[in-house]
Design a binder for these strands. Structure first.
Lengths: 336, 336
DNA sequence: CTGAAAGCGCTTACAG
DNA sequence: CTGAAAGCGCTTACAG
């Protein structure tokens, strides 16, 4: 039963040629190496007959390339990351690469550990949604000339490839939409992380208020602690809405904050309508099926994934140093 | 800049010992092998100083173990699979294993290809949500004594480890709930796959009707083609609800069917209430935030993941043949 | 047109 | 208490 896998040696023996010849043939170098058609045919038939697959581990050890790409995100089950994971997998697979993933839960130590682990696995390239404090680790990867693409979060101190969304514009547009429909007390619900893609959203909100001569009111900006339990966030939001009855519009800076927000409203029996408008971040079925439907800032997942993969393979396909690119894609404001 | 990684040889040289000694020390066999404390200390200090990490690829080639577990599902971005992926990753990571994933999109050929690929990567174990027609491939894995755990879908012809949910009981209970609140025309919306976990849901529905002396009406069961576009499904559902105005309850057999169903209702401006009840499959924020809230059959994701991982490691931790287990967990009917 | 041999970085049976 | 050496399964520079 327990059929030991065939090795290149077995094939060579069966075909009565050297393993060199077999290697050339299975690697498509037969013609280049002037192997006779008779030999090629004989070897290929044996390969097919016994179902021989070259041992990738041995190949990796010899070539230094594993055909594996690491995907490091905060949480693979987050719908945004799960979608990216799916699309990236599909695109990489077509090019003969597999994806190995891991979730950092936003811990820099976990990030360090993961990168070391992946290094020792001779992973060929890295797609990373970085945490604050991962700069040295990522820099070390780049020093070793490993293809790296950061996404979602930007690390300003790092000259790295990056694919993300224009969060400033997204929240500027969202806030502008509120202001242009004469909402006067626009709240922003965000998290207390000092990372660029979050602060950008706050800046966009501020600047849009300014453009409409609306005052920036500190107390209308709620910064929810990162990693806080949902129940607690809902409580905080109920508090905010009760305390500031003048609020007539809310922009939520993340998907899950918007979900907590809608839960809070449901709890309070408060309706979303022209006197209380809502825009969520990242679109999803939740928002489409809500009554009324909820407007949302949609990140272009397909384009993000495509860009990530193309940047990775641009590096993988050359030994030269490729100029770093920072790609910022527009989000789409979907009004409902 | 491009610092080549240190090898065991480098460490041995620096420490003035053989690579054998270094190997024993880094593998925790120093005491067992009676290495002197002085040597141990010297080597450990050098290892730490240069940040040496053993090359996993070389180790894999030598030992035949990669410390990688393959996760093969239909679609990693499906929330159910994404949650499982997350939990399995976390649990495996704690035990020193990493997860490599791939989506089959329900194609048996992709499944075959993936398994061959993973074999050549010397993956240590397999967690698979199988497609119909993958029996031989999975059997070949088991013949090679690779730990395998199937989940979500059961393949009756295979004596394999399996973790899943009692779908018969889940839909029996859901239908019973409808019947006991005097709904008379209970529809079932399912897909046209002849896999056990789907047919079980139909059987549960049928048997529950029978128990309440309700007739089984063919035209109240809609079998949506697998892989059909959402828009088309919504149209079909609108058609069903319009044509059969007598329907007063609907059980949806999957998460996405329920979402299509709610979209259809929204489109028709038809409300969910005591005259038209709905139960969805797999719980989620969509159902909690819907107005009114939607009842749902919830699969115990945490328990499923825990059981999968424990079955995998039971096999990984022994060389003996472990008796196969079929674990069927109860779903939870959440009434709202 | 084809092959012998070195070497990728480890682990481990064997020897002393 | 420690080391020399074989070998895991490949690829490739070199030789003929």
């Amino acid at each position: 039963m327990s059929t030991k896998a065939y090795s290149i040696k077995d094939i060579a023996q069966k075909a009565n040629v050297s393993i060199t010849t077999v290697s050339f043939i299975i690697n498509g170098k037969a013609v280049e190496k002037n192997i006779s058609t008779a030999v090629i045919k004989r070897v290929e038939e044996i390969v097919k007959a016994v179902g021989y697959k070259p041992n990738q581990v041995a190949r990796s050890l010899r070539t230094g390339s594993s055909k594996i790409i690491a995907l490091i995100v905060e949480d693979i089950s987050n719908p945004f990351f799960a979608s990216i994971a799916r699309l990236v997998e599909e695109k990489a697979y077509k090019r003969g690469y597999k994806i190995i993933y891991s979730s950092t839960e936003n811990f820099p130590e976990k990030m360090t550990e993961l990168i070391n682990l992946f290094k020792s696995m001779q992973v060929d390239a890295y797609i990373i949604s970085p945490v604050q404090g991962a700069e040295k680790d990522i820099q070390s990867l780049m020093n070793e000339r490993k293809p790296v693409v950061l996404f979602d979060r930007y690390l300003p101190s790092l000259a790295a490839n990056y694919v993300g969304v224009d969060h400033f514009k997204a929240s500027y547009d969202a806030t502008t939409h509120f202001a242009s429909t004469y909402q006067k007390h626009i709240a922003l619900v965000t998290i207390d992380l000092e990372v660029q893609q979050i602060t950008d959203r706050q800046e966009g909100y501020k600047k849009a208020l300014l453009a409409f001569d609306l005052p920036f009111r500190e107390h209308l900006v709620l910064k929810v602690p990162f990693n806080q339990q949902k129940e607690e966030t809902v409580e905080q939001l109920v508090g905010l809405f009760k305390e500031h009855k003048e609020i007539d519009a809310v922009l939520f800076a993340t998907n899950y904050l918007a979900i907590s927000g809608l839960s809070a409203l449901k709890k309070m029996d408060k309706l979303v309508n022209d006197n209380f408008k809502v825009i969520a971040y990242d679109d999803g079925e939740v928002f489409k099926l809500h009554s009324p439907q909820i407007s949302a800032v949609e990140q272009p997942v397909e384009e993000i994934a495509e860009k990530i993969v193309s940047l990775i393979f641009k590096q993988l396909n050359t030994t030269e140093v490729v100029a770093k690119e920072q790609v910022v894609l527009p989000a789409k404001l979907i009004l409902r």
